[in-house]
Computed example of a mutant assay.
Amino acid sequence: MPAAALKPKPSNEPLPTQSTAKRPVPLDTPYAPVAKRPLPPGRPREWYVTHNRRLKAMRLAIALLDSGVHQPDQARDETIRSAARLIGVHPPSETTCHMVRALMRYAR
Score class of each variant (00 low, 15 high):
1 M>G: 15
2 P>N: 12
3 A>Q: 10
3 A>C: 03
4 A>W: 04
4 A>K: 10
5 A>W: 09
10 P>I: 07
10 P>Y: 03
14 P>N: 05
14 P>R: 06
15 L>S: 14
16 P>S: 06
16 P>A: 06
16 P>C: 04
16 P>Q: 05
16 P>N: 03
18 Q>W: 05
19 S>G: 07
24 P>M: 02
24 P>D: 09
26 P>D: 15
27 L>N: 11
28 D>Y: 12
28 D>F: 13
28 D>V: 06
30 P>F: 03
30 P>S: 08
33 P>N: 08
34 V>E: 14
35 A>H: 09
36 K>C: 08
36 K>M: 10
38 P>K: 11
40 P>W: 03
41 P>K: 09
42 G>P: 06
45 R>E: 15
47 W>K: 06
48 Y>P: 11
49 V>I: 13
50 T>F: 04
51 H>A: 12
51 H>I: 03
52 N>E: 15
53 R>K: 08
53 R>M: 10
53 R>F: 01
55 L>E: 12
55 L>R: 14
56 K>W: 00
61 A>V: 00
62 I>W: 06
62 I>A: 13
63 A>Y: 01
64 L>H: 03
64 L>E: 04
65 L>C: 06
67 S>Q: 12
67 S>L: 07
68 G>Y: 01
69 V>L: 05
72 P>F: 00
73 D>S: 14
73 D>K: 09
74 Q>R: 07
75 A>Y: 00
76 R>V: 06
77 D>Q: 11
81 R>F: 02
81 R>Q: 14
82 S>H: 11
82 S>R: 14
83 A>K: 03
84 A>I: 04
84 A>P: 07
85 R>D: 15
86 L>F: 08
86 L>N: 10
87 I>T: 08
87 I>P: 10
87 I>E: 07
87 I>W: 05
88 G>F: 04
88 G>Y: 06
90 H>W: 05
91 P>C: 06
92 P>K: 03
93 S>K: 07
94 E>N: 15
95 T>D: 14
95 T>W: 03
95 T>P: 02
95 T>L: 12
96 T>P: 06
97 C>P: 02
98 H>F: 07
99 M>H: 09
101 R>Y: 01
101 R>D: 01
101 R>M: 01
102 A>V: 05
103 L>W: 02
107 A>W: 00
